[in-house]
Computed example of a mutant assay.
Amino acid sequence: MNKNSNSGPASGPRGFWPILLIFAAMALFFLWQEHRAHLLGALPYLIILLCPLMHLFMHRGHGGRGGGDDHHHKGD
């Protein structure tokens, strides 16, 4: 008997991932179709809720600048 022959339809864990991806894509499609109005209706509120997070990450917390704009006047 040949050891290298693949017997079985899925031949181990390799056949599992494509099937899982297909089912995940189908689930995401149907979730999007059924809940699109809810998700898009909440979008303005989510954008407003992102403002504090953007403030913290863009300024690296409160007091992140350290006092002034000294880095702009180094050539003077």
Rank of each mutant, 00 (worst) to 15 (best):
L39N: 14
P9L: 12
L40S: 13
N4P: 00
A27H: 10
D76L: 10
A42L: 06
L21Q: 13
F16V: 10
K3D: 04
L39W: 15
A10G: 05
F57K: 06
N4Q: 07
H38R: 03
H72C: 02
L46V: 14
K3S: 10
P52A: 08
P52F: 08
N2F: 04
F23S: 15
F23H: 11
G75Q: 09
F16E: 09
F57R: 07
K3Y: 03
G75R: 07
P18T: 01
P9V: 09
A27M: 13
H62W: 12
G68F: 02
M26P: 01
W17K: 04
F16L: 14
R65W: 01
G66A: 07
L50M: 14
A24S: 15
H38W: 02
A24T: 14
L31A: 13
G8Q: 03
H62F: 14
G66I: 03
S5L: 12
R14F: 08
P9G: 09
M58G: 05
G61K: 00
M1R: 09
R14I: 11
I47P: 01
L40H: 03
L56N: 09
H62R: 14
H35G: 03
R36F: 07
M54R: 03
G66P: 00
A10I: 11
I48W: 07
L49R: 12
M26W: 06
G68Q: 05
L50Y: 08
N2T: 08
G63W: 00
P18V: 02
W32P: 00
P44Q: 02
A10F: 13
L56E: 11
P18Y: 02
H72P: 00
M54G: 08
G75A: 10
H55M: 14
Q33C: 06
H35D: 08
H35Y: 12
G15Y: 11
F29W: 13
H38K: 03
P13S: 13
P13N: 12
G63M: 02
S11T: 15
L53N: 13
G63D: 02
L50D: 10
F29L: 15
C51W: 06
L50I: 05
H73K: 07
G61E: 01
P18W: 01
P44S: 09
P44G: 04
L50V: 03
G75S: 13
Y45L: 11
G41S: 06
C51H: 05
P18I: 01
L39H: 14
L46T: 10
G8F: 03
F23M: 15
A25C: 10
R14H: 11
